[in-house]
């Protein structure tokens, strides 16, 4: 209660147990705090990914410790390591198997651009086969960098227009 007798904010006695908000905000709030990653561990970066999940860096502070090796149960594919041409179709197929909404983090120089492996066998950047939301630099990135990427991803999800097209059944949701 402010001095001039006008009441601001939420009062459950008057409005009941109801909060009015934008649907976007609610959906995004739910989504961004429970991103279940799918660790696409391909090479060296996978070791740092394991380190991020370990006790010192503790990825579970962000609701992301639930590593799912099944793409059906995951929201965010962390491509950790060099994507070779032989592996590329498989990465894409696993991405296709993930249920939407889904995001991709390209972890490390190799996944982002091919990195130091400028050679006949290495795909120069995983963004040629899957859409990437966050790129992380480093070879390999430190766990802090990966955590920062996850926070960037949370920010990005927070700004998405999630409610658009949600009520139209026939419109496929990205």
């Amino acid at each position: 209660m402010s001095p001039n007798g006008v009441e601001y904010g939420y009062n459950s006695k008057i409005e009941g147990e109801v909060v009015v908000s934008k649907l976007d905000a609610v959906i995004n709030w739910v989504r961004k705090h429970s991103i279940w990653p799918m660790p696409m561990g391909l090479a060296c970066c996978a070791i740092e990914l394991m380190g991020t999940a370990g006790s010192r860096f503790d990825i579970s502070r962000f609701g992301m410790e639930v590593m799912r090796f099944s793409p059906r149960q995951a929201d965010c594919m962390i491509v950790a390591g060099t994507v070779t041409y032989k592996m590329a179709p498989i990465v894409r197929r696993i991405y296709d198997q993930m249920a939407g909404p889904k995001w991709v983090i390209a972890m490390g120089a190799c996944a982002s651009t091919g990195g130091m492996y400028r050679s006949y066998a290495t795909m120069q950047g995983v963004d040629r086969i899957v859409p990437v939301d966050v790129y992380v630099s480093g070879c390999p990135p430190r766990p802090e960098a990966l955590i920062d990427a996850l926070m960037k991803l949370q920010n990005k999800i927070g700004n998405e227009r999630s409610a658009r097209g949600l009520l139209k059944r026939d419109q496929a949701h990205a």
Binding site: L42, A43, G81, T82, T84, K86, M87, I90, Y117, R118, S119, Y120, A121, T122
Partner: peptide
């Protein structure tokens, strides 16, 4: 095998 063949020897 070969899914992580990056061409080290050629490099």
């Amino acid at each position: 095998i070969g899914y992580l063949h990056r061409g080290d020897e050629k490099i």
